[in-house]
Design a protein around this nucleic acid. Structure first.
Lengths: 261, 261
DNA sequence: GCTGGGCTGTCCATTTTGTGGACAGCTGGT
DNA sequence: ACCAGCTGTCCACAAAATGGACAGCCCAGC
């Protein structure tokens, strides 16, 4: 996502970057200084672009709090695009069941290039919850259980490419995300079918994930559960993993059926 | 949507325009020459922008057919934005019921600035169907039953502003869309509660619509039905109108309930 | 089998367009 | 009263987008 793609594209890639940044904070909205930092652009430029995007309805500017949100036009386009990418309807009942039966929070993430994006969340009943993951949050593949679950079923050369990011991942997420650690986790994932993330991103905040496959057999989505360490003891992991695999499989199967568009 | 908004925004507005154009053809995709026409830009410029957008995942380029589609990134962002604009989940059962009970095709449209955009469609069982309206299609307010239904509940001065578009509407959609004709239709809509579009856009292709109101009492969406003239005889209109109003009211009520975000 | 229309993809000189350093002015904390 | 950090805006400058032009492809029609 970093390399310069086409010529004459500078603004487009900047705009896309801004949209992604704003999209990461659907609840609170994103503040200008934060966006400036995250985008690595100068403030006037970001300011101008954000305003232009808002004028087109692609963003929303809350003038009270001075926060920026994804706008109605994106919602509309997303709804139209959903015809081609519909999975949420299939996944929602599964998430609900996962949350109901486990008490943990359940998530659907989708693979987008070299990242995963969280699309849907169903909160569990257990009163201690982690807020590392929520709608719009992006992680590189290999970080967080969803991305690990997906990565485990990618071809070896792609895994190599993804792991070799010149240290950016380790720097951002810590030494537990070294290539070796991740490879070990992928291996364990392939054996069990599901991933366990033992607090790699935030100590005490555990997660488990299972991949969902598209019609071509590619791992394109993942279901995951998050919660505190005490709820992911080995005895319970087996039960949680079984549930995740069940639901993931259910969705994978359903995706094979309807021959629409 | 035409006036230049902010300075330094040219590309942003062009990009937004392109996305909207591509979004109008979710089924077939849009071909480059058509996009060039619709956008009023030169081909190299459109070409470059489309490619840049595709590189960012905002568009999809089908290289077989050389068509352009809304891309996965838009889908993802739309899903995230949906948290703030959720209505589809509420509307889908209503559309289903409308389609089931009437046999016509049922639609949900949303107001977006001075236009309506069709978000959802449920096909009816009746074997003759009109394809004027489908997901992604945009009409100016005042054209098509959804836009009329919404417009009927806007303040007078806004109606004035919308109708006074310097003849563009009449030129594009025909003399049946003169300010006077529309005003008469709005009047009738306010009396009945629902709109009847007696083949104004395409002869023989009728429609009926009813507005759905947001929490502030603004008409922000519309349910509509389309079909052939013979299925919209006066006797049946009453029944169809009643159904539309019922479902529209049901959604309006539901929107008032959940105090989320 | 040739011709022409319409298409995709690309180049590069031109200049329009976006850029960002700098500044004004506001707010809230101390 | 001061400072830190914020929003909003200006404008000289140069980089980046623009679009006219061209090469080459494919298919329909004759």
């Amino acid at each position: 996502m970093a390399e310069k793609p086409v010529q004459g594209a500078q603004v487009v890639s900047r705009v896309a970057r801004l949209l992604r940044i704003v999209g990461r904070a659907p609840e609170t909205g994103a503040a200008l200084p934060d966006i400036v930092d995250a985008a690595g652009l100068t403030r006037p430029t970001v300011y101008r672009l954000l305003n232009s995007l808002a004028a087109e309805g692609l963003l929303d500017h809350n003038t009270e709090t001075n926060t920026w949100h994804l706008g109605p036009e994106l919602y509309v386009m997303g709804a139209v695009a959903a015809g081609r990418y519909a999975i949420e309807d299939l996944a929602r009942p599964s998430l609900q069941r996962l949350a109901d039966e486990t008490g943990e929070s359940a998530f659907l993430s989708i693979r987008r290039g070299d990242e995963t994006v969280c699309l849907l969340r169903v909160e569990g009943s257990f009163p201690v919850r982690s807020f590392v993951l929520h709608e719009g949050v992006r992680f590189p593949l290999g970080v967080a259980s969803a991305g690990l679950a997906i990565m485990a079923f990618l071809p070896e050369e792609e895994v190599d490419r993804l792991l070799d990011d010149g240290g950016a991942r380790v720097e951002r997420f810590g030494p537990a995300h070294s290539a070796e650690s991740i490879r070990a986790n992928l291996e364990a994932t392939r054996r069990a079918g599901y991933t366990v993330n033992p607090g790699l991103i935030l100590e005490g905040s555990w997660g488990m994930g299972a991949a969902v496959f598209d019609r071509n057999g590619q791992p394109a989505w993942a279901l995951s559960l998050t919660g505190i360490e005490q709820r992911f003891r080995p005895e319970r992991q087996e039960m949680l993993g079984k549930l995740l695999l069940e639901e993931a499989h259910k969705i994978t199967q359903q995706l094979k059926e309807p021959q629409s568009r």
